Amino acid sequence: MKRKGTKLIALALVVLLMSMTLLAGCGSSKTDESNGQGDVSNDLPTVGISTGSSGTSWRNIMIDALDEVGKEYLDAGKIANYKIVNNVNNGDATEQANIIRDFISEGVDIILVNPNSPDALNGVIKEAQDAGILVLAFDATVTAPDVVNVTLDHYVWNVKNVDFICKTVGKGTVIQVYGLDGHPANNERIKATEDVLKKYPDIKMIASTSGGWDQTKAKEVTTQIIGSGQQIDGAITQDSMGFGVLSAFQDAGKLPKVMFGDPGTAFFKEWKKLRDAGADFKACAQPNPPGIGGTGFRIALNLYNGMEFKDDVLKDGTYYYEVSSFYTDENFDEAWEMLKDKPDDYLLSEIMPQDKVDELFK
């Protein structure tokens, strides 16, 4: 009887241990469903990234930056995985919302989104937040509550460009080739152009049209404007379109007095040729770093891990990344030194290093 009782106790212990193992295997992968922050010591996050569009040099470099940081974090054991999904229809907010819903159903812990609209994604962002997912917007901003936006101040960025162009023109005409219609960053840049032009009553805007942040399209629309035969003294455009705009002028045997140019190899090569030939041509170039996506990735992971921003970092829920470089004829050689050995589609960029990101937090 004693041996039989011992066997029964041992069997009961085995059953108990098996039950505990099964229960442990059924537990939630998150320890805090209200804010998406898991116990990172035992549970690494999965990251879903919606880029909104792809195919342009700037976008491809941005995607590479996201990939660079994602691989860095994978190798360091800081995340479980990451997934980048690009829109099929560039700039379409409805498609982007569906991509985000796919991320929600897949159970990701962090969603990074380069939004195609400031407010059209608010509903799906709330769905993600209700599911305990941390959402961060980069490059452009959203109006959804409790979302950190990581971006340039696109208004300030373009004020600097347009003011340089207007000061150089003084009196005359300008054209504008802007980015994607309706995109939040583009909206801010157009507003900057309008506000600066109000300060220069002797300058007339004779054409303003979308180049879609694409060199080929920018060249096509600029060619059409030039074909009207009107005098064009200045060309206001944005990154990823400057080379196309300049090419249209060169093909027509004309040059504007001044324009904004891409902070990249292709544009700087042509700019150098014009400088060397003594052409009556000036330009300015200011990076809009494609690496903003990688910077946003770093900030999002810090937030997921429970870190808090210092009191003066955010402005209305947004972190504005500061671009320190601005290139004209005066410091052309500085940029050329960085670009001269790079491929034509290379653009000056930067990703905020991890230690600098950490300095933003308490």
Score class of each variant (00 low, 15 high):
K7A: 14
I9Q: 00
L11K: 03
V15G: 07
L16W: 05
S19A: 15
S29W: 06
K30P: 09
D32G: 05
D32H: 12
D32T: 12
Q37I: 10
D39P: 08
T46K: 13
G48A: 02
G55F: 07
S57Y: 10
S57D: 14
W58E: 13
R59P: 09
L74K: 12
D75S: 15
D75C: 01
A76C: 03
I79N: 09
I79P: 10
N81G: 10
V88H: 10
V88D: 14
N90F: 09
E95M: 00
S105E: 11
E106S: 14
E106I: 03
I110R: 02
I110Y: 01
I111F: 05
I111V: 13
N114D: 12
N122G: 06
V124K: 00
K126C: 00
K126Q: 15
K126A: 13
Q129I: 06
A131K: 10
L136R: 02
T141A: 13
N149H: 04
D153N: 15
H154T: 09
Y155I: 02
N158Y: 09
V159P: 09
D163Q: 13
G170K: 02
T173S: 11
G179K: 01
A185D: 13
N186P: 04
R189I: 08
I190W: 00
I190Q: 13
D195G: 06
D195M: 06
L197K: 01
L197P: 07
K198E: 14
Y200T: 04
D202L: 00
G227Y: 01
S228D: 12
Q231E: 15
D233M: 00
I236L: 11
T237P: 11
Q238W: 07
F243M: 14
F243H: 12
V245D: 12
V245A: 12
S247L: 01
S247Q: 11
A248D: 05
P256C: 04
V258F: 00
G264V: 00
G264D: 08
T265L: 03
K269R: 15
E270P: 03
A279E: 04
K282E: 14
N288C: 14
P289W: 00
P290K: 01
I292R: 00
I292V: 15
G293Q: 03
L301T: 07
N302F: 11
N302M: 15
L303G: 07
Y304T: 03
N305G: 12
G306F: 03
G306S: 05
D312G: 06
D312Y: 08
K315C: 08
G317Q: 07
G317D: 08
Y319N: 03
Y320P: 09
E322W: 10
V323C: 05
E330P: 06
D333G: 05
M338Y: 12
M338S: 13
L339D: 06
D344E: 14
D345S: 13
Y346M: 05
E350V: 14
M352P: 02
P353A: 09
E359T: 03
E359L: 10
F361Q: 05
K362E: 14
